[in-house]
Amino acid sequence: MIKVKNNSPATGDNIKIIDEIVRRHNIHRGAAIPILQEIQTTFGFVPPEAITRISDLTGIAESELYSIATFYAQFRLEPVGKNIICVCHGTACHLAGAEKVTEALQHATGARPGGTSPDGLFTLEKVACLGCCSLAPVMTVNGETVAKVTPEKARAVVKSLREAAQKNKTAKGGRP
């Protein structure tokens, strides 16, 4: 959480980036969603400071922006972990045991579905159908699809990501 404040986007250069995003989309009618989408792509989440800034620039009330950001599942109002794991909970994946995969990941990462692990390494999400039903169950790890996941395979993925993070840490001389 402390980290967030350091990256608070509403400072210096970041304000310029937000302004630029708004400027680019605001020529179209009904641009609130594309603006929020690009803010999220840029910062990884939609920070409250950005909402205030968008409201100032577009004249759309902050309350309305929040109402949009909380309605759509895509938007996150909190920062995410280093690794994002999304487990597909579509029908085919459900039948093939997605629940067990999520449970295994929950234990392995320490993150609850929809949340981030205390060490900030993992964000775990249950998502609607990813459309790879013939390869069920499916999850995406940092955007890459992993097919036919088993609880073991899921735990192995977490283990290797954890090791990679550890290595990174030591390489940087032990600084977090």
Binding site: R29, A32, I33, P34, L36, F71, Y72, A73, F75, A128
Partner: peptide
């Protein structure tokens, strides 16, 4: 192209239009 933002109800045509207008679907 307009990208959806993750709401199943937006497959319903009037909700889809609301979403395209930049509102809750």
């Amino acid at each position: 192209i307009r990208e959806g933002a993750g709401a199943f109800v937006c497959g319903e045509e009037t909700a889809l239009l609301m979403s395209m207008e930049g509102k809750r679907g």
